[in-house]
Amino acid sequence: MLQALTRTVDWLSELFGIVAGWMFFAIGIFVAYEVFMRYALTSPTVWVDEIARIFQVWATFGATAYVLKHRQHIVIDLAFRDANTLRRRIVETFSLLVIVFFGCVAARYGWDIWLKSTLAGHTTDSYLAVPKAYTQSAIWVGFGLLSLQALVEIYRVWTGQANLQSHELGGH
């Protein structure tokens, strides 16, 4: 049961990370298109800024769990370099619990803001008038998945499955 949950969270983190990468790529294409339209054809678009912003919000929040899963965030391991010590496991667990706490708080308040905005029918103040729910949902989805991935990583720390070696984390 726990293995199935772990695989599911890992799969979702991978999926969101891959989609986020393609969204960042698409943003580059959109902005290049806008530059061409604006300066070469003097005919700017009305959609690039808004769509690029939505993609950027989703890609940023969606990629957080992917980054944690692959341990590609900033790591400072001066005092706890040996991954097999109890102290290292305790420090790892503490840092992951901070992520869980922050992620849950952000997801909870993000959900409240999203729900209020969705029920009220709020839209952006642009020509497209995109529902704000599109960007606001990225907050609770991204931080919710980040919290789940952090719990999976805590499980890995205590079952010996975590990838905690400093040389594998890009350390010195």
Rank of each mutant, 00 (worst) to 15 (best):
residue 1 M to S: 12
residue 2 L to S: 12
residue 3 Q to M: 11
residue 5 L to G: 03
residue 8 T to S: 10
residue 9 V to E: 02
residue 14 E to M: 15
residue 16 F to L: 15
residue 18 I to D: 10
residue 18 I to R: 13
residue 20 A to Y: 07
residue 25 F to R: 02
residue 25 F to Q: 05
residue 27 I to N: 00
residue 28 G to T: 04
residue 28 G to K: 00
residue 29 I to Q: 01
residue 31 V to S: 08
residue 34 E to N: 03
residue 38 R to E: 08
residue 39 Y to K: 06
residue 42 T to K: 15
residue 42 T to L: 15
residue 44 P to H: 05
residue 48 V to D: 00
residue 48 V to H: 01
residue 49 D to Y: 15
residue 49 D to A: 12
residue 58 W to R: 05
residue 58 W to E: 01
residue 60 T to H: 06
residue 61 F to W: 09
residue 62 G to D: 01
residue 62 G to Y: 06
residue 62 G to R: 06
residue 67 V to C: 00
residue 67 V to W: 04
residue 70 H to Q: 13
residue 70 H to R: 11
residue 76 I to D: 09
residue 78 L to Y: 12
residue 83 A to H: 13
residue 84 N to D: 14
residue 85 T to N: 06
residue 86 L to C: 03
residue 86 L to H: 11
residue 86 L to W: 13
residue 89 R to T: 00
residue 90 I to G: 07
residue 93 T to D: 05
residue 94 F to I: 13
residue 94 F to V: 12
residue 95 S to G: 09
residue 95 S to D: 06
residue 95 S to N: 15
residue 97 L to M: 09
residue 99 I to C: 08
residue 100 V to P: 02
residue 100 V to Q: 04
residue 101 F to P: 02
residue 103 G to L: 00
residue 105 V to W: 07
residue 113 I to P: 04
residue 113 I to D: 10
residue 116 K to N: 09
residue 118 T to G: 06
residue 121 G to I: 00
residue 122 H to W: 11
residue 123 T to L: 08
residue 130 V to W: 04
residue 130 V to L: 15
residue 132 K to W: 09
residue 139 I to S: 06
residue 145 L to N: 07
residue 150 A to P: 07
residue 154 I to H: 03
residue 158 W to K: 06
residue 163 N to A: 10
residue 165 Q to A: 15
residue 165 Q to F: 14
residue 171 G to N: 07
residue 172 H to W: 11
